[in-house]
Design a protein around this nucleic acid. Structure first.
Lengths: 206, 206, 206, 206
DNA sequence: AATGAATGAGGGTTCATTCAT
DNA sequence: CATGAATGAACCCTCATTCAT
């Protein structure tokens, strides 16, 4: 309850400390990703940030708003990391492989479907729209690259958005763990190779 | 609001009515699938069954137990429906196509990953183990058929479990709806064909 | 929940089995003594008797009635055991010592005050009256013997009821256990001797 | 029924009002002493304090914790009041008499045995340990004085802790009320004298 | 004589949110 | 900018009691 009583008033700004608003967003994002919307309370976020609940509300007017911001921030970061990888001047297949490897390494299991489901249930219409736009952006990043490679002739012609979703879906298989905590294919590198290969067999231009 | 006030005590038994325990399980399964564990309260289940919360507890000692039973029942039903389809004496690819079509038609979006995540967070160790066993059973049903078709030479040699998971993952793409509620590929039939085809290109024995 | 489904209808009466009504009363008494009124539910009693709750209600119309009967039965038994001991043709002090020893040996800590408090709070007026009458009966048994011994000149003249209560109060000290579960004076026999002696010093006719 | 609807948020601070946390503890102590753990709900405490249940939980994380705090606070107060009386420079017997008188005047029937029983049944291990420590402290206060008076030769040599418990036990007899609400010996003063005298006859150094 | 099924009224606890300071 | 104190609604679960069979 009553932990380390903080002093009243504005705390002196610790030069290299993150602004509170960012700290809250990052912490919330991490927690929401791990446990989902309903399993994380505003108190949980506050405790993890070592601030009070009221502080959270100072920056984010409702839990829904915080979740919305968290999802958008997350998707934005993912989009950027995808872009960075896809822009490299190496063969497409290798880039895809890297994409899988990087995401599987990030320990946290990014489950888009789940986030969107929780958003649909718990957010307001406008909030949901924002999140959907972000999700769309993210997928488009891959989609556009798919399109480019189709035009290149690297992969066969097809529905680029469908390809993008399929790729992401196959990637989630890499996250799977059975009752004993074992993944399907072992190491991240092997998994990345196998997943990419499976995808590649479907899309390559023979 | 106050709907059909029920009397205390044992109700006169309506011969052709479903046993309450089954009604509860079916209703709970439906609700949990749609909204998830935390978003559905025991009261929600009770109201949907038109009984009181106490009745639910008469049959299922805790919410976790109800969720466990619901998941297991669901996975069991899915497993049976999969089996039924896969046992037909028609070409493997056609059977897969049917599998996709049937599941996409079931309106409810079966999201295994999400169920397992909620189970991990909210269930007790023994409950979780039960659910995991059920999930495993379900995947094995597909896996075994994959294995048979590999041995047949219908599809290329590979990790059957990996193939099974990939197939299910690709199937979920069919569920995807964008902000306007549109699926990626239109009608269920077209989607089923495209999804199966995408999978097939990866696994066929060329 | 669903344990060993019993057959419907009246069970054949197992010759040497206790009538259910008695079984219920004895079980309830034991449970109420150990854990108190509020900590024991009708379900607890039913389970401990291996019958259903409805059976309990068949014999005892309310929980209060069951508690009332249980307390009265207990006090009656105690009264009889007291009588038996006090009627022996041995010196009074030795009889008192036996009284303490016998009750301390009964493992269960008979806490009259507590029973009466719970009765006051939870029982109806008429039920409470019954219990109080029983308690009074019990004390009177000791009181009367005290009176006889006063008239005999074995103990000093005084308020016999007060003496009786004091004796019972001192007896409860023998039950005391500290945080490590140790009694104040060690073995039951030593305790019985010391307690009686303490009482005796106050009442003996010098 | 609906009394003074309170507003949300932090209330304007009424300078001379008791801090809520203290109010809660005092109220809870009073209620628990009168009716016991299970007979008092968190709602009862809240209503008696004219705050909501959530406020109680703001200060005390569980009912068990509140009970623990209440018992400890009570025993502490009793210990202090005992100390104050026993430290006076008047004959020991008179101090004991005052002790009885003061406690019998306090209307509330302090029943240690009962509190400890409820604690044993309802509290967690660590909570129980705390309460037991407090109880021990309280008894030690009397015990130490007994020891001093033994060394003084005022009372006979014996087990000081046993004496202390006997004294407290005899004190409880003063609380006894029969079915008609009458005490055994009439006025508080007479009772105090008689009880002390009974004890004294056992312990005086002749 | 005994059961199985159901209820309504709480009881403990959590949580998003509010607001004076 | 941030806090501490408080609320009301909801949530999971328990329990005494009822009644058709």
């Amino acid at each position: 309850m009553k932990q380390s009583p903080r002093v009243l008033g504005r705390p002196r700004h610790d030069g290299n400390a993150k602004p509170t608003k960012d700290l809250v967003l990052e912490t919330a994002t991490r927690l929401f990703i791990k446990e989902g919307y309903k399993n994380i309370s505003m108190d949980d976020v506050a405790k993890a940030c070592n601030v009070t609940k009221a502080t959270i509300y100072y920056y984010y007017p409702t839990k829904g708003e915080l979740y919305t911001s968290a999802l958008i921030a997350m998707m934005d970061r993912i989009k950027l990391s995808i872009l960075e990888i896809l822009e490299q001047p190496i063969p497409f297949k290798e880039r895809l492989e890297q994409l899988v490897a990087v995401h599987l390494s990030a320990t946290i299991d990014i489950d888009m479907k789940n986030f969107m489901k929780e958003a649909t249930i718990n957010l307001s219409e406008p909030q949901l729209k924002q999140v959907q736009a972000s999700e769309n952006d993210m997928y488009q990043t891959i989609e556009q690259t798919m399109q480019v490679e189709m035009d290149n002739g690297t992969i066969r012609k097809g529905n680029a958005k469908f390809f993008a979703h399929n790729f992401m879906a196959l990637m989630t298989v890499g996250y799977f763990k059975d009752g004993d905590g074992k993944t399907l294919l072992g190491s991240v590198d092997v998994t990345a190779k196998e997943v990419t290969n499976f995808f590649w067999l479907s899309v390559e231009n023979k």
